[in-house]
């Protein structure tokens, strides 16, 4: 497509009044309804007192967004959204909730005392953004032709135009992976692995690292005072 056609499409066709805000098309209605669902579940996700439910409501919101993507003819992205977000991110979040021993059921202190300020800021930012957006794009219409977001188109575009960022992204993922492993390995003060061996006479503590060295049985459990190791 050349620039002129792009611009033409961008500014909307010169056809009069076939598109009007007050007579929504079908896609718009569906979009609106799904949008309400998405918004509602997002609001519940950030306000509910049950932490695990919040994760599940997040699932609903993200799923709804995948539907929105479909409506906007971006199929590949919709499925990627489902795959990555619903498949791995939310799972990770749930794992995180589990590993940090999030309370199951209602927890009355799920919101910090910051929430009124947060509400104010959120409302203000919402108001600002919405006003700006509506004001800026009052007369802009999307031309929804099918196929613009198919896998082949997206793939071709990625591997023709976006190869370098794609590779850089893979490096980023590698870095994130390595970083996550390093972070979760824990501190250096680790109890050494128990050795097999004879019962030794009393050795002063600290000569071989810990008391564990003098005992015949393995004692990976460090005293409760040290940081609990969690291999994982």
């Amino acid at each position: 497509m050349n620039v002129a056609a792009t611009l033409l499409a961008a500014t909307g066709s010169l056809e009069p009044a076939a598109r009007s805000f007050l007579s929504p098309t079908g896609q718009e209605i569906v979009f609106l309804l799904v949008g309400i669902a998405v918004l509602g579940s997002a609001v519940v996700a950030v306000t509910t007192k049950q932490l695990v439910h919040a994760a599940l409501w997040l699932v609903v919101a993200l799923g709804g967004l995948a539907v929105e993507f479909l409506l906007l003819t971006a199929e590949f992205i919709a499925w990627v959204q489902v795959l990555i977000y619903l498949g791995s991110v939310v799972v990770l979040v749930l794992f995180g909730l589990m590993l940090t021993k999030a309370p199951i059921g209602r927890s009355p202190d799920a919101d910090s005392k910051n929430r009124w300020v947060a509400l104010a800021v959120a409302l203000a930012s919402a108001g600002t953004l919405v006003t700006l957006v509506v004001d800026a794009f009052r007369t802009s219409w999307i031309d929804l032709g099918a196929g613009g977001g198919s896998a082949s188109v997206t793939g071709a575009s990625l591997f023709r135009n976006w190869v370098l960022p794609f590779e850089a992204l893979s490096v980023l993922l590698l870095a994130a992976l390595v970083g996550a492993i390093v972070l979760s390995r824990g501190s250096k003060r680790r109890v050494p692995a128990p050795r097999a061996g004879r019962l030794r006479a009393g050795r002063p503590v600290g000569s071989n690292g810990t008391v564990a060295a003098t005992a015949p049985r393995p004692a990976p459990e460090a005293p409760a005072a040290t940081t609990p190791e969690q291999e994982g």
Partner: peptide, 13 residues
């Protein structure tokens, strides 16, 4: 986005 902002600023966990 605004809902996300609220969540970031208001949630304790």
């Amino acid at each position: 986005f605004a809902v996300g902002v609220y969540g970031v600023l208001a949630r304790r966990n």
